[in-house]
């Protein structure tokens, strides 16, 4: 059976690519520290030597739209073109093409449906920065096949937080039951407290540092019980109007497992939002 060699949860910050590649007067003062942290985080994936990446993210109104909005969607395609005009325009993100791993996509869809998750699917999916940001930070060679899993954290009505955890738990079991010798890493990105298009955006820190502190503690310690007890669809409005992206972290806590202490934890307090990086090794840390 396949093995999950790493579970990785991270914020996705579309400004990283531009900040880390900028030089001279264009290079922001925080770029060097940010790059150092990303290189250390990248090493946690490299050490696990994965063959396939399952990528959990959320389309930001690029391909998925309000006339036909899935809650959870799995890509099943041989290739995924990536990044969109408005992401090139605002963030300077490059266009990319990633290979797909269709056998694992089919396995996740079949087994997920049979486990009670009515997953949508797409055979032609252009992915966005929720997936390409972690490719850029963690595997910039973009050389491994992927299975994208999109969640709706964006267009209410949204699934309940516990449903994200449950889907993560199911994804863990489903991948571990995949009849394959391949080594799988599951990588998901979301947000801590975040405000977009509201009065608290682009402040000197994230909009709710206290929420961020508690969130990092829940994730790092695998404290699913307290997280699910305290986080509701209503409560997530309070830390910032885009904080529902935290539910992708909750999905990844489900993949990592209840009580699973992260093997690697790092954070970076930036303007606008806090960055956070977590890695678990379900089968023990690689040598």
């Amino acid at each position: 059976m396949a093995s999950i060699v790493a579970v990785i949860a991270s914020t996705h910050h579309p400004f990283y690519y531009r900040a880390s590649t900028a030089t001279g007067d264009d290079r922001p003062p925080f770029a060097d520290e940010w790059t150092r942290k990303i290189l250390a985080f990248r090493e946690t994936l490299t050490r696990a030597n994965p063959d396939v990446l399952v990528m959990v993210g959320s389309d930001h109104f690029h391909q998925l739209w309000l006339d036909n909005m899935p809650q959870f969607l799995v890509g099943k395609a041989p290739f995924y073109d990536a990044n969109w005009y408005n992401e090139e325009r605002e963030f300077g993100l490059p266009r990319m093409t990633l290979r797909g791993q269709e056998d694992l996509s089919a396995h996740i869809l079949r087994q997920g449906l049979d486990a009670g998750f009515d997953l949508a699917f797409s055979n032609e999916l252009r992915i966005d920065h929720s997936v390409t940001c972690p490719i850029i930070t963690l595997r910039p060679e973009a050389d491994l096949p992927i299975v994208p899993i999109y969640t709706n954290i964006f267009a209410p009505p949204l699934p309940q937080p516990k449903r994200f955890v449950q889907l993560g738990q199911a994804v863990r079991e489903i991948i571990e039951g995949w009849p394959s010798h391949l080594r799988v890493a599951v990588i998901g990105t979301g947000h801590l407290s975040l405000e977009l298009g509201g009065p608290r955006q682009f402040g000197p820190h994230g909009p709710d540092p206290e929420f961020d502190r508690r969130a990092v503690e829940w994730i790092a310690s695998g404290d699913i019980d307290n997280c699910v007890r305290e986080v509701t669809l209503d409560s997530l409005h309070s830390p910032g109007n885009a904080t529902h992206g935290f539910m992708d972290f909750m999905l990844m806590m489900g993949v990592a497992g209840a009580g699973a202490k992260a093997d690697y934890v790092d954070t970076l307090d930036l303007f606008h939002t806090m960055e956070a990086y977590f890695t678990w090794y379900p089968n023990g840390a690689p040598a």
Partner: peptide, 26 residues
């Protein structure tokens, strides 16, 4: 209106007039 959509489009139209970083966003 969805604030992400509004913000993204308005940045596209007006960020170019910034005289310092993030001026329009702030």
């Amino acid at each position: 209106a969805h604030p992400f959509l509004t913000l993204t489009l308005f940045i596209a139209m007006f960020e170019r007039d910034n005289t310092e970083p993030l001026e329009y966003q702030k």
